[in-house]
Amino acid sequence: MIKIRDLNKTYNLGQPNALHVLKGIDMDVAAGEFLSIMGASGSGKSTLLNVIGILDNYDSGEYILDGIPVRDLSETSSAELRNRKVGFIFQSFNLISYKNALENVALPLYYNGIPRKKRNELAAEYLEKLGLKDHALHLPSELSGGQKQRVAIARALISRPSIILADEPTGALDTTTSREVIEIMREVNRSEGITMLIVTHEGAVARATDRMIYLRDGRIESDKHNPNPVIEF
């Protein structure tokens, strides 16, 4: 699913203030995994997430996503690849404020050229799966934090991507809601079989996943299987 070999990334390459963020990452993720990347701030976890999500490029090494080498893509083709292969969940939800829940969920399909009727049907279906059937026509401002994140999850799911990348998905939520969101992600991972990668600095979130990767100073410090994932909020 994901194959990363000796991945290096330096900001301000060739300048005096150059910052070597990723120092030779090797990583493999199989399809359907539920894993987390942990690390302190500045460890390079966000940069790694951006590279995996094709939002940022890298300097050397190899990154293959679903059999497709991701390297020197044009803006247009990286946008297409992102649209089809990657779903994003953000800490601050990043829903579009003037669109209702249904329209927010349908947005990735809009950029995929799916006709309006079809994508609204699909969006309604996914909202129902996430228990938001009655909130389909609500604006984000009329939803609670947990509901917003569920809309965001539905939006990440709708294009049936190969992988969903979640950047601190519980960062802005209280413990009860965090638990709810992690449970949903777990459930989605199981039922839809979509690979789920969570970037977090919270140990509790990481311990809820099957595999925990620790990053430190741009290197993988440890990569452990978690035989007993627990949701302990």
Binding site: T76, A79, E80, R82, F88, I96, P108, Y111, N112, R155
Partner: peptide, 16 residues
């Protein structure tokens, strides 16, 4: 900016 960034992340092409 943020909205446009989100759209890009969701697969909006420069042309869009």
């Amino acid at each position: 900016m943020r909205e446009i960034g989100v759209r890009r992340a969701l697969g909006a092409k420069p042309w869009n």
